[in-house]
Design a protein around this nucleic acid. Structure first.
Lengths: 168, 168
DNA sequence: ATATGATACGTTATAATATTACATTAATAA
DNA sequence: TTATTAATGTAATATTATAACGTATCATAT
């Protein structure tokens, strides 16, 4: 199992994450002959800087502030489509929001644990889940092509915040 | 495994499905002291009559035609919220649409197989999936409360439509 | 270097989805 | 009945997403 749960929920050197992610994004672009423009990089950066998913209009606000000029929705959606296409970010359908992908190079499940208290989202890559879903689809003669798996509940921190503090 | 895949993808006596579903909906309401009003029943009916999920504004059109008078979005969203609350329907987040639930009484996975060709959606209830996801959440100290699992691909019919017709 | 074609961006308008607020009506309970 | 709660009608508006079209930038072949 591969997850960024700890990174999301615990303190760490986040600039390093971002730089590593950007480096990896640039090499992916080189590989695929895709252009990582200034706008696209900024949007990716903004998403990496937030461990919560950001909506298109939040991104619009933030990018607009960053560039000190108005930015239109289309600009955001174009950047986001580009990043989605490369697998550098994901769309969380239930939230109408986007989040950076912690392991863009790995085959993974698009499985997200979404904290309904604090809004944090961790991604989990789990081969067994993929395998099981594939088996289910095979049995049903359904040709599986992609998936969106969203789990809602409380992240470790919010779970422990609400729990009885007496330890057995 | 419990699925309505065959019902969705094959011919059957659909009126019987709908009547059974409505009966079960009414008994659920009785049990929970909830009111199944005319509007709510109509919306549930409309969703049962469609094996494709319907958006709020599609429901608005259809209900408006049915009642021969204008219906506002709020009316639809209220009915839909009520039905969601009882587990009689589901929301498919990736489609911004709603679909009737084929087995409202069972513990199940909210797992959907969505055909990107014809738009049909089948629901699958699978204990192993639930168990596995629960295990994953336990390991991550994530308190799981609900989930939305959406699989995209081709349904049996659309898969076979596209396939080489020579049989070995 | 520069013409060309493809890609990305700017800009405006608008479509599609969803919610809020408040008045009115209907159902239930006292 | 009257009081209370629940449901609906109605209008306005918020939020999310796309379309259309012109302009600028980049890659490359000449």
């Amino acid at each position: 199992m591969l997850t960024n749960s700890r990174l999301v929920h615990q303190f760490h050197d986040h600039d390093r994450c971002i730089n590593a992610a950007l480096a990896s994004a640039y090499s992916l672009c080189a590989e695929k002959n895709a252009r990582m423009t200034a706008i696209r990089e900024s949007v990716l950066r903004l998403l990496w800087q937030s461990h919560q998913p950001l909506g298109a209009y939040q991104l619009q606000d933030q990018l607009s502030r960053l560039l000190n000029k108005p930015v239109a929705p289309a600009t955001i959606y174009r950047a986001v489509d580009f990043l989605l296409g490369l697998g550098l970010i994901h769309r969380i359908a239930s939230l109408n929001a986007f989040i950076s992908c912690p392991f863009p190079n790995s085959e993974h499940s698009n499985l997200f644990m979404i904290c309904t208290d604090c809004g944090s989202v961790a991604e989990v890559a789990h081969n067994t889940v993929n395998g099981l879903l594939q088996t289910i689809c095979d049995k049903a003669n359904f040709t599986l092509q992609s998936q969106s798996l969203e789990l809602f509940g409380q992240c470790p921190q919010c779970s422990s915040d609400g729990e009885d503090s007496s330890h057995g």
